[in-house]
């Protein structure tokens, strides 16, 4: 479960998140949609503390952090919180000096202190799961974008996070490679992995989401089931956004 209450983020004078409240129950997949600059990436980055929120509360599993002006997190607190989240990046961000397998092993050994054998066993199983069992020893530059992103998902999964965060996982991909990545995410949703996904793929959102969240200008304008948002919304801003996306 992940609960966000009254979350604010300022960059200097610019308020990018203006009091976000969200509840994502365990095992559910939430999809965040919204126009460019609405704060979607910033929200995800706040959830794994790549950005430190200015104010508000984040609860994740049994951990809870409250932020305000006087909050000074130690690096131990930050790291312990981050271990509960996995992040999948738009640009994959695989480690280029390590093979696919080593990318997935690294965190298990360095952070989770597993033995090499344990870590490798898990890494191989995850590669199999994302359909790359035969690519274990390839370096990132030898893989297609879709394959790299699937390794990215496996790397995040290897840490056994409470929640997986995806920031536009397919927007850097050629159209014909999008499907293979979305399939992996759908499978994870079916297995009741808790996921928060920022995407511009509306059909995918409709299919995979338990909850759709529409953000604009730093606020959550509307949230609900896919049919509530995509078919039955009465909200003018949501309608406007969906129409604009449909035109493309």
């Amino acid at each position: 479960m992940i609960q966000i209450s009254n979350l604010h983020k300022w960059f200097d004078q610019l308020e990018v998140l203006k009091g976000i409240d969200l509840l994502i129950p365990r095992g559910e997949t939430a999809v965040i949609i919204g126009p460019s600059g609405s704060g979607k990436t910033t929200l995800l980055r706040c959830l794994n503390l790549l950005e430190i929120p200015t104010q508000g509360t984040i609860e994740l599993g049994n951990k809870s952090i409250h932020f305000d002006k006087s909050t000074k997190l130690t690096s131990t607190e930050i790291v312990s919180f981050r271990k509960s989240t996995g992040m999948v990046f738009q640009g994959y961000n695989l480690f280029p000096h390590l093979t696919a397998l080593e990318n997935i092993i690294e965190g298990q050994i360095i952070v989770l202190k597993k033995t090499k054998a344990e870590a490798e066993k898990k890494a191989r199983a995850l590669l199999e799961k994302v359909g790359l069992g035969d690519r274990a020893d390839m370096y990132p530059h030898q893989l297609s974008g879709g394959q790299q992103q699937r390794v990215g998902i496996a790397r995040a999964m290897a840490m056994e996070p409470e929640v997986l965060l995806f920031d536009e996982p397919t927007s850097a991909l050629d159209p014909e490679l999008v499907g293979e990545v979305l399939k992996v995410i759908k499978d994870l949703a079916k297995e009741n992995m808790t996921q928060v996904i920022v995407t511009h793929e509306m059909n995918f959102a409709r299919e995979v989401a338990d909850q759709v969240i529409f953000m604009d200008q730093g606020v959550v304008v509307e949230k609900g089931t896919p049919s509530e948002i995509f078919q039955n919304t009465k909200n003018q801003r949501t309608l406007q956004f969906l129409n604009k996306v449909a035109e493309r």
Partner: peptide
């Protein structure tokens, strides 16, 4: 992005430096 990827799997700053950043810097 390399720092952030390292942080996202729970590495500390010094772990990220040693395991991810310095090996790539050597080249």
């Amino acid at each position: 992005g390399q720092w952030e990827a390292a942080f996202s799997i729970g590495m500390t700053k010094s772990q990220a430096m040693r395991r991810i950043i310095i090996p790539q810097s050597i080249r």
